[in-house]
Design a protein around this nucleic acid. Structure first.
Lengths: 214, 214
DNA sequence: ATTCATGGTGAGTAATCACTCACCATGAAT
DNA sequence: ATTCATGGTGAGTGATTACTCACCATGAAT
């Protein structure tokens, strides 16, 4: 009888996945689930199932659920080359380009839809990595813009406003846009480019028509 | 032996609380907990403990945890007389007063700090009452403002902008302010009034100094 | 051909979850 | 004095939670 090959209880033909691949797969799957359901709203069971592995394996790569969450935030917190482009525009005092750059980094086709929800959830739920996440994804550009506005006021190009509040106002417009679309699911009625252009024009030029008879 | 009064196992001197009072107390306590920890992050045990009653009593007033949450959102969704004041300012075409009214309703001393977090949590967690909450607390005023801006453009008082995007931009500034303070705990560096005035001035007048030599 | 580090899992664990039930306590009306 | 609607609770329930452990599977190196 031992000549008969006992069929494996797990007749998987596929070769085993490497540790790195599995880890990355788990992070992606979990990121999506955490973004939709939050930390407490997501179970390790569901993550494992969605990633197509056993729960036990998940805990081999990440000692706790918290560790997995932290790993996700760390990965998502890495920002792109936006900073350099913004600093370049700042050096050239190209207002429109600078504001358009900042806005279209968030409002563009293919922008990661899970990122904003993760950012919000981690802040609301008070995760330990939330501050770092906020710092990397937001504060950096906020400070950059506030400083730029400050310099432009000194030069006389901008009206005398509070640079900090002005920077917050502009980011508010953008963040709010993501909020409406990523969280409340509102449809866009203009293209990404037109939306950005309109926001930038509004912020730079204001709402009230400037009378020329003054 | 039966002449000896058996001491009650619950020697509470206080008279019993009425159903309405208890219900209100539970709603307030739970609202604060849901606002800080979200729906899934708050246990019925903790709510009962914080309200100083047994878990069993909680379930006598609210059949499920969901029902309690819904009751909270229903109560918090009732808006004040802001609408009438805004419509009055709109009739008089008093731009500054209208925008200041809208902004200072959210940015003022004593504004309910749990409301914004509840609004965000319910939207992120996808609660069934989230849409109603959003409609009552936000959409109403958003539509009001968009219509007003539309009329002011026709009259020639405002520049030709997209009224919907303009309304969203303004609310974005305000919502973002609450986000920074209620969720991220950033301190304010101006008074509520000055902050509102600065935001309104920025939005109406824009950032760029208008050159008089044109 | 055997070894063995590593990928992978089924079947648990104690703790906690939302929720229930049988029962006690109170006080105003009879 | 007794009744009885209502306020209130201790001690549960089965289901689900994050996490563990003993063990199997694979394949490249010896």
């Amino acid at each position: 009888m031992n000549s008969i090959q006992k069929p494996s209880p797990h007749p998987q033909r596929k070769s085993r996945t490497s540790a790195n691949q599995r880890q990355a797969s788990l992070i992606n799957t979990a990121a999506s689930l955490f973004a939709t359901n939050g930390f407490t709203g997501t179970t390790t069971k569901r993550i494992a199932k969605a990633a197509g592995v056993s729960e036990a394996l998940l805990f081999k790569y990440f000692p706790t659920k918290q560790a997995l969450y932290t790993a996700i935030l760390e990965e998502k917190a890495q920002y792109s080359g936006l900073r350099e482009a913004v600093e370049d525009a700042a050096k050239k005092q190209d207002d429109e380009r600078l504001f358009t750059l900042l806005a279209s980094y968030r409002i563009r086709r293919g922008a990661d839809p899970t990122l904003f929800r993760l950012l919000l959830f981690s802040a609301l739920e008070g995760h330990e990595m939330s501050d770092m996440f906020f710092q990397r994804q937001y504060q950096v550009f906020h400070d950059l813009l506030a400083n730029y506005i400050h310099r432009r006021i000194e030069v006389g190009a901008f009206r005398t406003v509070d640079p900090l509040l002005a920077a917050r106002a502009f980011f508010g417009i953008i963040v709010h846009h993501r909020l409406l679309h990523d969280v409340y699911g509102l449809p866009m009625h203009l293209t990404h480019e037109d939306t950005v252009a309109e926001y930038v024009s509004l912020f730079l030029g204001g709402l009230v028509r400037q009378s020329s008879d003054a």
